[in-house]
Amino acid sequence: MSFTRRDLFKMAAVGAAASVGGNLQASDDAYPIDCSQTYGVLVDTVVCIGCRKCEWACNNEHKLSTTDLKTFEDKSVFQQHRRPVDNAYTVVNEFKNPETAKPYTIKVQCMHCNQPACASACIVGALKKNRLGSVDYDAWKCIGCRYCMVACPFQVPAYEYNEALKPRVMKCTFCLDRLEEGRKPACVGICPNEALTFGTREQLIDLAKERIKAKPELYFNHVYGEKEVGGTSWMYLASTDFINTELPKLTNDPIPHTTETIQHGIFKSFVPPLALYGLLGLIMHSLRENKEDKESDDERS
């Protein structure tokens, strides 16, 4: 490995310091932003031991529950397939590798897409990709339409349905507060086994390919998230083809591409709507001249 965790940590600190001084807000205009230098996490399901400490650390960091770390040692939850919900941004599931029949565990959470469908869908820009890599949610702007949940190709955002007055969309924040302070996300911090590695996307893709190259017998030769839907901040390695995992099969096209093309086509500098307006106005005007004739026609008919 060409760099250590400590190096990554330092880089994170430098990067975060730079962004705090600068352009965290400017994500909107520069969309899609250059994502090679945004942060990400490599999830290596081959190395993951399914200890579920990341679940606890996440809950603890975001005050989602106060359950004791000990209760997360309970492996019986693996009997059911779980998804991220409003009080758990991340969950670990266990599956069998169909080729080797051995179980493996996989952590799931928001992928923090480079070109997020949720952010493209959001009617008020409450979801935004920022330069640190996080797809961040601003509950204050949110109107609660849940179109982000419809749009997400990973089906990650959950909703506080039981909150009557101020429900929020709930999903992994990539521990944005910690990133801004130059710290790693809580789940990465607690991972005992290098199943979670924090770094820039560029570094992580290199690292992932090195790991595959070093032990090709252990890894399926694909970095999930490198190219899927235009790339994601969180990426995965697995022992089996990803169609056997719970990660959905996706093309490399960014999800918002089609709708944004249609949308911007219809509204190209407002020319099409104005042209339609003009055309209808013209019809209205030119047919009006024949109005008298028409009316007498109508009378006769």
Binding site: Y31, A119, S120, A121, C122, I123, V124, G125, A126, K141, C142, I143, G144, C145, R146, Y147, Y159, E160, E163, K166, P167, P256, T259, E260, I262, Q263, H264, I266, F267
Partner: peptide, 28 residues
């Protein structure tokens, strides 16, 4: 009835929250 935060329904009118990529924004 369907909006979780129905009292924010006017938000799309604020230029600071305009989101030209959103189909829903256009519909709204």
């Amino acid at each position: 009835a369907d909006l979780g935060r129905y009292y924010n329904v006017w938000h799309p009118m604020l230029p600071s929250m305009w989101q030209g990529n959103s189909v829903l924004f256009e519909v709204g």
